[in-house]
Amino acid sequence: MMRLRVGAWWLLALLLLPVLVPQALRTRRRALRLAPAAGPQQGVAGAEFAGPALRVVLLGESTVAGVGVACQTQGLAARLAQALAEQQRRPVAWQACGENGITASQACTRLLPQALAAPADLLLLVFGVNDSTQLSSLRSWRQALTCMTQALQVQGAQVAFTAVPPLQHFSALPWLLRRVLGLRGTLLDRQLRAVARQLGASYCPVELEFAADYLAEDGYHPSRLGYQVWASGLAAQLLSQQLLSQQQSAASAD
């Protein structure tokens, strides 16, 4: 079934190539390019709470680098740490290992060593947009996700994936281009979910309304409000899955 879907996507892309290529080139020329967020790439949220800190590391593309906001304290990593600290009433030490424009395969050599050097209880992988736009093969996508997950699990970290963002809602892209890339992202997301199931990692859908207020001025990355809403949803999902995992472990022990 997956081969049929992939074949259908390539057939569609080839048929629309005379339209998609000019759109892609024009979009690249006109795109507003925002810099990564300024400030330290790590910090502590909920320092007012007692107890040992939960260590959270985010590994990923431009959203982990904080593109779309002015400073990292407004970005996904810091916002997620704050939401987790408030929900669990404990300190959360966070670190962002992100690079603008990076694919999952590139991250295996350029970012994974940083993540492995930072002891973590929870490690969140945030990829998919660049692999969609750069047409990464499904095989290389699976291999990269598997490589990173297994390396991180060996160190005892709980690994979670965010879903591939829905490119069909990125207002910076022309309608036809974003629909075709959105379909490509859906194919990658199916593979991501399969890898998560196989390796025992968590999978978190992107629960974010892609309205103007939630997008930065480039129409491509989240705004300050967008990161805050995305992080709150992620924290709730991670907490729910953590409790579910604990309940399953308790039931197995009984």
Rank of each mutant, 00 (worst) to 15 (best):
A211F: 00
Q23G: 04
F127L: 09
Q23L: 15
S171C: 13
Y203Q: 12
V56C: 15
P113E: 01
Q74G: 04
Q158R: 14
R139Y: 10
A118S: 13
L181A: 10
A107N: 08
M148N: 03
E209V: 13
A50Y: 02
L215C: 09
V195K: 06
L225V: 08
R90V: 04
V57S: 12
S223E: 02
L208D: 07
V154R: 15
G101V: 05
N100P: 06
T133C: 13
A70F: 12
F170V: 10
Q72W: 04
A144F: 04
Q241S: 09
Y220D: 02
L58D: 03
T109Q: 13
Q82N: 05
A211E: 07
L16P: 11
Q150F: 01
V126W: 09
G156K: 05
Q158L: 13
S105H: 06
W230S: 12
F49K: 13
G101R: 05
A8R: 14
T103N: 01
R139I: 00
T149K: 03
G182W: 11
Y203H: 11
Q168F: 00
L11K: 06
V19I: 15
A96R: 15
Q87L: 12
A35E: 15
C204K: 01
A77D: 02
L54D: 01
G128D: 02
Y220M: 15
A93V: 01
T109H: 12
A201Y: 11
L14I: 13
T103E: 03
Q246G: 09
R179F: 10
Q74T: 02
Q247A: 10
G46Q: 07
R89W: 02
R55E: 07
A120G: 06
Y214H: 15
Q242T: 13
P222Q: 06
Q150T: 08
G66Q: 05
Q155T: 09
C97V: 15
S249I: 00
L80K: 08
L125C: 11
L80H: 01
E207W: 11
A83T: 00
R29G: 04
A83D: 03
G39H: 06
V180M: 11
A172K: 10
S202D: 14
V164T: 05
R110D: 07
G101C: 02
L59H: 00
L188N: 09
L181G: 03
L122A: 03
T186A: 15
P40F: 06
Q143R: 15
F49Q: 11
R90P: 10
A38S: 13
F127I: 03
A65E: 06
A115C: 14
A216E: 01
S136I: 00
L234N: 05
F210M: 13
M2W: 02
L4K: 09
P22W: 02
L177H: 05
S232G: 10
Q247C: 10
L4V: 05
T162I: 11
P22F: 01
R179T: 12
Q246K: 12
Q82Y: 04
N100H: 11
R5Q: 13
L25S: 06
V159E: 07
E61G: 08
Y214P: 00
G39E: 03
P18H: 02
S245G: 15
Q95C: 11
A115S: 09
P222E: 05
Q246V: 00
Q72H: 14
